[in-house]
Simulated assay, not measured.
Amino acid sequence: MARLILASGSPRRAELLEQLELDFDVSSADIDETLKLGECAETYVKRVAYEKAKSVAQQFHDCIVLAADTCISLDGSIIGKPQSKEHAFHIWQALSGRQHDVLSGVCVVAENEMYECVVKTQVTFQELSQSDMESYWQTGEPLDKAGAYAIQGIAAKYIPSIKGSYTNVVGLPLYETVKLLKAVKALN
């Protein structure tokens, strides 16, 4: 079987992939992840996952490359990582008491084959008080997280429900990833 490369520096994606008990190496893709004018969330995550996989596949011939990209969408707008405390509070005020979408594009490239998918999960946040936001910010967890939260961490206490894949919200939808890896014979 060909060597599997995870085209991501995300420790959360590596941890999720380890749950599948696969041997893999990690190689971060160095690509421009800038949102293109008029690009919707679904198109964006699909494009970025493909570009990550393609970039790493060019470095590692005869390997299977798995890449993913995840974003949060609210009312059609992509919500990124917080740039400051004020930005995080602005994000949480927008998410508070509402449902938003978490979308992941997943792409697997092997030799001349390429398989991809986009997975969407709906996440509902409770109403967040100023005290909730201040307390959560102080944990340090929101830094470097899309939407300024980590569902697998402290933020879980603010999320009464999700509809769809939990692992998608963490950063790699495992069920769909397994299907793609089976398509390239990386799994039985």
Rank of each mutant, 00 (worst) to 15 (best):
M1E: 07
A2Q: 09
L4Y: 06
I5P: 00
L6V: 10
L6P: 07
L6H: 09
A7Q: 04
L17S: 04
L17H: 06
D23A: 14
D23E: 15
D23I: 02
D25Y: 12
S27M: 12
K36V: 04
E39F: 07
C40Q: 10
A41P: 01
Y44T: 05
V45A: 03
K46E: 12
V48E: 01
A53C: 10
V56Q: 12
V56W: 15
A57R: 11
H61T: 13
H61G: 11
I64W: 03
I64G: 07
L74G: 02
L74T: 07
D75T: 01
I78G: 05
K85I: 10
H87C: 00
F89P: 00
I91V: 03
L95C: 06
L95D: 01
S96E: 02
S96D: 06
R98Y: 00
V102E: 04
V102G: 03
G105W: 03
A110K: 15
N112S: 14
M114G: 00
C117Q: 10
V118L: 11
T121N: 02
Q122C: 05
E127M: 07
E127G: 01
L128Q: 02
S129W: 08
M133Q: 09
Y136T: 06
Y136F: 13
W137A: 11
A148G: 07
A156P: 14
I159C: 14
G171Y: 09
L172F: 14
P173E: 00
L174H: 02
E176M: 02
K179V: 09
L180W: 14
K185D: 06
A186Y: 05
L187A: 06
